[in-house]
């Protein structure tokens, strides 16, 4: 493939783009985990908002960053105990 590209005069897809993309992803993790309060503060805030709408199991909530294929996702696992009737209106 390399040879074909070169014969056609195409530039090699350089490693620069790979470097840039890997750095972008790794820095999302770094910056989030460097401040230990960040995820905790986010979790507290999420609980506060969600509690307005449903009953949740606050003890078992997990909020974390997870790697997807080409991105980082904020994944929250929030067990629901029940819905408040008012929220269904």
């Amino acid at each position: 493939m390399d040879i074909i590209n070169r014969l056609l005069g195409r530039e090699n897809a350089g490693s620069r783009d790979i470097a840039r993309e890997r750095l972008r992803l790794v820095l999302i993790h770094d910056r989030a985990s460097v401040s230990p309060n960040f995820l905790n503060a986010l979790k507290e805030e999420l609980i506060r908002v969600i509690r307005e709408y449903m009953e949740i199991d606050e003890e078992s909530i997990i909020v974390d960053l997870e790697n997807e294929d080409n991105s980082v996702a904020l994944v929250a696992n929030i067990p629901i105990r029940g819905f408040k009737r008012a929220a269904n209106e």
Binding site: E11, N12, G14, R16, A19, R24
Partner: peptide, 16 residues
């Protein structure tokens, strides 16, 4: 290396 696309350039680094 920057010209052949094998090293990040200044703009890449400043963006990050």
């Amino acid at each position: 290396m920057v010209r052949r696309g094998d090293m990040m350039d200044i703009k890449d680094i400043l963006d990050i």
